[in-house]
């Protein structure tokens, strides 16, 4: 069957099987491999993208069901070469390691901040609770989203020293102490 939808602002049409999953449509048919998949049961959230402005798990949506709708993937987050503040936050706060869950996390984080520009740490944790990260223990992801909340226009307003040298701003989220051998 033929499906037509808007992906990252551009209309695309492809001939697909009715059973084609949306995640395969964007990855295999459109070459947008930033959207990943990590399970088969809609538990991991690596495949999260936006459909009609809402984060959805694209392994559990048919491409056919997305026909006529608007899809946004991680590839659309940066604009004019400028990273979205959530992308910057993930970099500043080391919110990613292997990078596999990152696109899904970014899409959920962007959506959260659009609705709630100043989310609490608890709110952030709940928002990403359907998405697994095996590397970070989540703390720096939470810090990254907070960073983006505190820098809604990105790094332009960040002191350079703070960017490269300070620990991520994460009030109440952990703390650290050091003792070094003489």
């Amino acid at each position: 069957m033929q499906v037509t939808m808007t992906v990252n602002g551009a209309e695309v049409t492809r001939d697909v099987e009715p059973r084609l999953l949306l995640v395969h449509f964007v990855r295999d048919h459109l070459g947008l491999t930033g959207t990943h998949w990590g399970c088969d049961t809609s538990n991991c959230g690596a495949c999260v993208l936006w459909m009609d402005g809402e984060p959805v798990k694209s392994c559990t949506v048919l491409a056919a069901m997305a026909a006529g709708r608007s899809v946004r993937t991680v590839e659309d987050l940066a604009r004019d070469g400028e990273l979205d503040p959530v992308q910057q936050g993930f970099m500043q706060c080391h919110g990613l390691q292997c990078g596999f869950c990152t696109p899904g996390m970014l899409m959920t984080a962007r959506h959260l901040l659009d609705r709630d520009p100043d989310p609490s740490e608890a709110t952030i944790r709940e928002a990403i609770s359907g998405q697994l990260c095996r590397c970070t223990g989540y703390q720096n992801i939470v810090a990254a989203v907070r960073w983006a909340a505190e820098h809604p226009h990105g790094a332009a307003e960040v002191d350079d020293e703070a960017v490269t040298q300070s620990a991520p701003a994460a009030p109440g989220e952990g703390r650290s102490e050091t003792e070094v051998s003489a």
Binding site: S42, P55, V56, T60, V61, A127
Partner: peptide
Amino acid sequence: IADPVVRNR
């Protein structure tokens, strides 16, 4: 129920 992203669908 499930998680926030699943609840969107």
